[in-house]
Write a protein that binds this DNA or RNA. Structure first.
Length: 591
RNA sequence: GGUCCCGUGGUGCAGCGGCCUAGCAUACGUCCCUGUCAAGGACGAGAUCGCCGGUUCGAAUCCGGUCGGGACCGCCA
């Protein structure tokens, strides 16, 4: 080893010990004939000192040294003179008196500060990620992620789970997200796909008798990235044989309770985690991942407005649609501009408009006030639970659109008005879910996962007779309004799996082509089994209180999926293309 | 595919029709300094305001386009 100690470990008891430290120059303080260097590595910062009088050789060497140079310092640990200790440093009671200073490497002036917490343009941060990773914030996030991952892995391993690596090159299946694909050289014209998740593989592992599987698995989804959605995500992937939903939920809950108690910056609001059905979540919060850190639950005004002369509401109720609303406490004074902005939010989820009622003293201000009698307005007030000074925002639409648009508005207002309890983390389960949801074309698609089993025998029967009313074993784990993950107990009969595909308009033949391996496996003794997958990037992001998942990974890409560090993606040279049997028709873009 | 915000010395910001010969902080360079720890002091260098075009007597500032970054909608089983 080039060093005897790290920069984080020396204390007063080490005084007089000869040491060799190797690390980066964090800061230099030059007092002329006395020079201090803060030497920094992953472990901490240690002050190096050299004086012209007593350590002339080291002192001379330090004259030229600059920030981020890499040094090897030979010296002796000394307790700092009285009055010069630094309580802010773990090593603040000592300093290393340098005898010789070797320069292992010089460094250009860094493109941004390593020793300060200023925000930096992400393009620059990712391009110089090796500099960025030296920053305390980035380093702490890498450590947090490492510790959380290690903890979770041990948690499952201690409970009898085997970590098994599944293949990264699989068959493309264009359901769900777009696949990232890899051309095959040996089979020209054919392609591998990178897995969106190891879903089918882990089910096949259960059929193989592995019994309990865990993997911190990389998954790839070629959809436009967002702050909390990246191309390459890492998920905690778990599967167990001979289980019911409560078994998977219970071990997941135990794991996440421990993870958050150990690593979060604030306590859990409540354990055990509350449970909402999908229907209740939609009815009360207008979301299948409700943020329960604040109230403002949805209210139904359909009955209250049934007899009014306001056609939008009256006609909606008459045709079986609903009027849903939220009460924004104390916002009766909101401006027209505010309300217009909120209406735009509601419209993004399909609302045709947004009607406001401001209850200010004896007066009710609303753009549509003239269509309502005083009694009707009072009925709206009482059935919404609004009190003086409150603002009621209402949408008329079909049940799902009304809930979803008001729910989105609720989430938006929660952010805008800082309504959420910031002192605790609110976990909850959403379970069960409907098995199917409507496609825009009027058909059916799976609500989460085509392999999710029906909740009961009754639901299994409904798959054929009335898919709309069939419930699945699906459970989602939600924290602070974020979907952390989800899973289900799987279908373990080929016949039922094929029936489910059929409802979704996938024929037996098509299913056999796309999901052949799994369907065949189901005929060779498939156990009842289930599992869950949760997002590790999101987990770390929430633990660290970040708004973006990009910082939680070592080598992030930009929002357009560009990697500034490696300058990727990049064109292939013609020889590579030829070998793969590929011809590129689109000219590469500006990059 | 779409909407919105941003782009000014290395970095982070200010300036938003003429007072800009572009300001501040910090970093950077040279010098002074033996107890600092965001060291201090003195001096200095560094940007034609992302790019292209337009409006104007005059553009960092207004308009259009384009490129790049970010937030969001669509999309994300």
């Amino acid at each position: 080893m080039l060093r005897t100690h790290t920069c984080g470990e020396l204390r007063a008891v080490d005084a007089t010990v000869p040491v060799i430290l190797c690390a980066w120059v964090h800061r230099r303080r030059d007092h002329g004939d006395l020079t201090f260097i803060d030497l920094r590595d992953r472990y901490g910062i240690t002050q190096i000192v050299a004086s012209a009088k007593d350590q002339p050789e080291a002192h001379a060497a330090l004259k030229d040294v600059r920030s981020e140079w890499v040094l090897r310092v030979h010296g002796t640990v000394r307790e700092r003179p009285a009055g010069t200790r630094n309580d802010k440093l773990a090593t603040g009671e000592i300093e290393v008196v340098a005898s010789t200073v070797e320069i292992l490497n010089e460094a250009k002036t860094p493109p941004f500060y390593v020793n300060e917490e200023t925000p930096v343009d992400e393009n620059l941060r990712w391009k110089y990620r090796y500099v960025d990773l030296r920053r305390e914030r980035s380093k702490d996030l890498m450590r947090l992620r490492h510790e959380v991952t290690t903890f979770i892995r041990s948690f499952f391993v201690e409970r009898g789970f085997w970590e098994i690596e599944t293949t990264m090159m699989i068959r493309s299946d264009p359901t769900g997200a777009r696949d990232f694909v890899v051309p095959s050289r040996y089979y020209p014209g054919k392609f591998w796909a990178l897995p969106q998740s190891p879903q089918q593989l882990k089910q096949i592992l259960m059929i193989g008798g592995i019994d309990k599987y865990v993997q911190i698995a990389r998954c790839f989804r070629d959809e436009d990235p967002r702050a909390d959605r990246i191309y390459e995500l890492t998920q905690l992937d778990v599967e167990m044989s001979f289980v019911e939903p409560k078994d998977v939920m219970s071990i997941t809950e135990e794991c996440y309770t421990q993870v958050f108690e150990r690593f979060a910056q604030k306590p859990l609001h409540r354990t055990p985690f509350p449970r909402l059905t999908y229907d209740e979540a939609m009815r009360r919060y207008g979301s299948d991942r409700p943020d329960t850190r604040f109230g403002m639950e949805l209210v139904d005004l359909s009955e209250a407005v049934r007899g009014t002369s306001f056609a939008v509401f009256k006609d909606a109720v008459a045709r079986g649609d609903v009027v849903r609303a939220i009460v924004v406490a104390g916002k009766a004074g909101a401006s027209r501009k505010d309300v217009d902005g909120w209406a735009a939010v509601a419209r993004t989820k399909g609302a045709k408009g947004l009607v406001s009622f401001a209850f200010a003293g004896s007066e009710v201000r609303s753009p549509v006030a003239k269509f309502f009698t005083a009694e009707e307005l009072e009925r709206i007030r009482t059935s919404s639970g609004a009190t003086n000074g409150d603002l009621v925002l209402a949408v008329a639409s079909d049940d799902h659109t009304a809930s979803a648009s008001i729910g989105t508005l609720r989430a938006h207002l929660g952010e805008e008005l800082h309504l959420a309890d910031a002192s605790t983390h609110h976990f909850l389960w959403v379970h069960p879910f409907p098995m199917f949801e409507r496609t825009p074309g009027g058909g059916w698609t799976f609500s989460h996962n085509p392999f999710s089993g029906p909740l009961s025998e009754k639901d299994a029967a409904l798959v054929e007779t009335d898919p709309a009313t069939a419930y699945s074993t699906q459970y989602d784990l939600v924290v602070d309004g974020n979907e952390l993950g989800g899973g289900s107990v799987r279908i373990h009969s080929r016949a039922l799996q094929e029936k489910v595909f059929q409802v979704m308009g996938i024929s037996k033949e098509e299913a056999a082509t796309r999901f052949g391996a799994l369907l065949d496996a189901l005929e060779y003794g498939a156990p009842p089994e289930g599992g869950i997958a949760t997002g590790m990037d999101r987990t770390v992001m929430i633990l660290a209180g970040l708004a973006s998942a990009r910082e939680t990974i070592a080598f992030p890409k930009t929002q357009t999926g560009y990697d500034p560090l490696l300058d990727a993606p990049a064109a292939l040279d013609p020889a590579q293309l030829a070998e793969l049997g590929l011809k590129v028709e689109t000219k590469p873009g500006p990059r």
